[in-house]
Nucleic acid binder design. Structure first.
Lengths: 201, 201
DNA sequence: CCATTTATGAGACTGGGTGTCATCTTAGGT
DNA sequence: ACCTAAGATGACACCCAGTCTCATAAATGG
């Protein structure tokens, strides 16, 4: 027990139900607005009890944002796999490509989600929390990288700051992208955001 | 009506009560923990009704964080008063001095508050929200500055990113400061955080 | 001194989130 | 095929945050 992450049959079933619940919930949120839908209504719409819904998502917000956790993990992994000699800033930029990918894959859905989050204070707050978690993870990942003959990593302050800034770039780029109804190029926006430092201004 | 911000007698009284309530609340939070104190208990401890308490602070979190709003305003003002030719990054760094000042003035209290916030997810989330608000305000302030012969401010993306990064610097510096029990120099930490970009790594 | 705000208190009400318990289903060993 | 134990579900009861309404008390301004 407590040994490996064996993906049992039950785990798969759970994940499927989870996805289904999230799907139904998102549809309702989009139509009625996040605050105008109660958990009971979500449960009823999905055909489960309120208890069950809350067992899958500890929070109404998590029904929308649970996917972000995996996202953060993937970015951190991508960052760890960047070449050792690469400077932090470009490593971060490249790591964020895996996050961008999600948005390029299904822009319509992504746009809808991003909109919903930005228009809902509760979701916005919860998302900030998650990003805060990423910050530490990415900061650690950066600090663990062989810093190519540079500083011997006395502590992680610098890396953490750069990780935080990179996440802000993503956040702000998404903001602009959403405002433009997804018609501007997200990748270009992110590049411009990252460029806010390289010129030095 | 709806003309000026005349500081009437009532406004002053309100502010005093507000401060008193916040004081009592903070004391309770510190002793018992944020989540272990109900609004009713706060009200009773302060000698007012639950209704009244909720009228002064729309939220339990606001009883702790309401002071941040003024703080944000002050930083934005300080930023606007920086010399026109100054580059964004140092202007931001200097503007944050007014925020730092609060912590240098009463480190013990400031440390206690910061600790409470960091240890309480709900407070942390709310604070992130406020910082998000600052980001826009500071971004605007930066973009409005005469950008000294540089770009004619096509839009505020760059400034917003820099503002966000500066706020992260403050946040992270405070994190380190709190972790060190306030024994490390906050100003030095902030300088180091800001330096995470200037070398280029 | 009276009339009109304005602060307060009381209480009802909605909704989120936790916890418990009984029931049902499914997995896994015999 | 069967039996048992573990996990999933549903049906509550419960606490608390936050909103709203209404009645009353207090201060303000004429």
């Amino acid at each position: 027990m407590a040994v490996a992450r064996t993906g049992t049959t039950r785990d798969i079933a759970r994940a499927a139900v989870r996805a289904e619940l999230a799907e139904v919930a998102f549809e309702l949120f989009r139509r009625e607005g996040f605050e105008n839908v109660t958990i009971s209504e979500l449960a009823e719409a999905a055909g489960v009890s309120r208890s069950t819904f809350l067992r899958y998502f500890g929070t109404k917000e998590d029904a929308v944002l649970f996917a972000l956790d995996a996202q953060g993990e993937k970015v951190a992994d991508a960052l760890r796999e960047r070449p050792a000699g690469e400077d932090d800033w470009t490593a971060l930029r490249r790591a964020l490509d895996v996050a961008i990918e999600q948005y390029r894959h299904d822009p319509v859905e992504a746009l809808a989600v991003t909109r919903l989050v930005r228009d809902t204070p509760a979701l916005c707050a919860r998302q900030s929390q998650k990003h805060r978690g990423w910050r530490h993870a990415l900061g650690r990942a950066l600090a663990d990288r062989v810093s190519a003959g540079g500083t011997p990593a006395v502590d992680a302050l610098g890396p953490t700051v750069r990780a935080a800034a990179a996440l802000d770039c993503l956040d702000i780029a998404l903001d602009y992208w959403t405002t433009s109804d997804g018609k501007s190029d997200l990748e270009a926006l992110l590049d411009r955001a990252f460029a806010a430092f390289t010129p030095g201004a």
